[in-house]
Design a protein around this nucleic acid. Structure first.
Lengths: 213, 213
DNA sequence: GGCGCTACTGACCGACCGTTCAGTTTTATT
DNA sequence: AATAAAACTGAACGGTCGGTCAGTAGCGCC
């Protein structure tokens, strides 16, 4: 196992760069700004990294690595897939809200147009996203095979609902808390619980469901 | 009524700028690049707009205006709120996929950190988003009052699910179509139908629902 | 002490950035 | 035709950008 082959100096650069890139994006952050934040000289950055592109890739790589750790969280050895889906949703939304910098970088890489300014970053974020997304899809499929989840639904559609909602929740909380007269569930866990309840049982009242039959 | 007070020259600039800003973001796009695309001189841009910031604001304003037109689409005079929610979802996802540049600009403005590089843009996108979001919330509330939607669910949570899923669908289609062995619903309308079905009725099988009681 | 290697720095480079300006062409009005 | 305003341009500005380079400081090793 290769331990951290990153010197303390390089790590300072990575930390500063991660924070700045997450806040302002690639193009808006100058090497000088990163050097200032890391309290080293500009030239020293080029001692550790070949170019701004390479530094950004390194930052994104470490972010994806951190993001992938979420995958390892177990949803619980449970034959109740409703519970497992709930655990996944909670774990995911907590990961997003607790690691905003990491999440912002990965999500931006995912959502921004392909053919990005920095080559090879698309593959990084797409691959990381795929891992999380596919794990959820796999979980849903297992639930379908266990006859707990409706078989006619595309697993990917359920996954899109859940992950899309979590991302929007995390990114737009500051905007959405101004929704008039109705308090928005600001606590991530409350949100995840409420969301998973909707996904499992739907929003229609029973009387309305009956009417449709 | 003030007609279009924008000269044809300024409109060429706006069109070019909108496309470039949507593709690459604010900081990555230079005035020279916009001038090239609009086939005019760099200095001429400053005849129509005071600064790059102001140009970006103008682009965003027109994008928000275009985005707000979706609001005017009627969901149908129907006392069946399931149908109305479905119409909204379809209308929304079609708006996103048919106007990718406009949508990208608004979504980026919404999702990127507040305290943006360009002042006053946050208010623009947030306000536009609020309009769409609040309209959906209002629709859901009406459905609750008509006893068709469960009263204990926060309307904003349902809205987050729907809008978040649509955004992720639109932005990540190119990534998600690589989901293994399971074809992803690439048609926006198919996706909206499937999504709304989940939101209305949930994903659990009836036998599983019964078990929970 | 001398050697080699890594970490690090200040000064500098050409390219490009947003912006300005003096001046020219086009257009509308009389 | 004369005039004035609007549309437009080429050249240049100060400044910042990513990146380079020669040189220094620190450190383990012989």
């Amino acid at each position: 196992m290769s331990a951290q082959e990153i010197s303390s100096g390089a790590q300072k650069v990575l930390d500063a760069a991660q924070e700045l890139f997450a806040e302002e994006g690639y193009a808006s952050v100058s090497i000088a700004a990163i050097a200032d934040k890391a309290q080293i000289s500009k030239a020293n950055i080029y001692h550790h990294f070949d170019s701004k592109d390479e530094l950004y890739c390194a930052v994104l790589k470490s972010a994806c690595l951190a993001s992938a750790e979420m995958i390892t969280h177990d949803t619980g050895h449970n034959d109740n897939y409703a519970t497992q889906l709930g655990n996944f949703a909670k774990s995911h939304v907590l990961h997003l809200t607790n690691n905003p910098a990491v999440s912002t970088l990965v999500i931006r890489g995912l959502l921004e147009e392909s053919g990005n300014i920095v080559s090879a970053t698309n593959d990084l974020t797409a691959n990381d996203f795929d891992c999380n997304f596919n794990r959820l899809v796999t979980l849903i499929k297992a639930g379908q095979e266990a006859k707990q989840i409706k078989p006619e639904i595309q697993p990917a559609t359920i996954a899109t609902l859940m992950i899309g909602a979590n991302i929007l929740f995390m990114k737009a909380r500051n905007v959405l808390d101004e929704v008039p007269d109705n308090e928005y569930p600001l606590d991530p866990e409350d949100f995840a619980n409420s969301m998973i309840d909707i996904l499992l049982h739907g929003v229609l009242t029973e009387q309305q469901e009956d009417k449709l039959l």
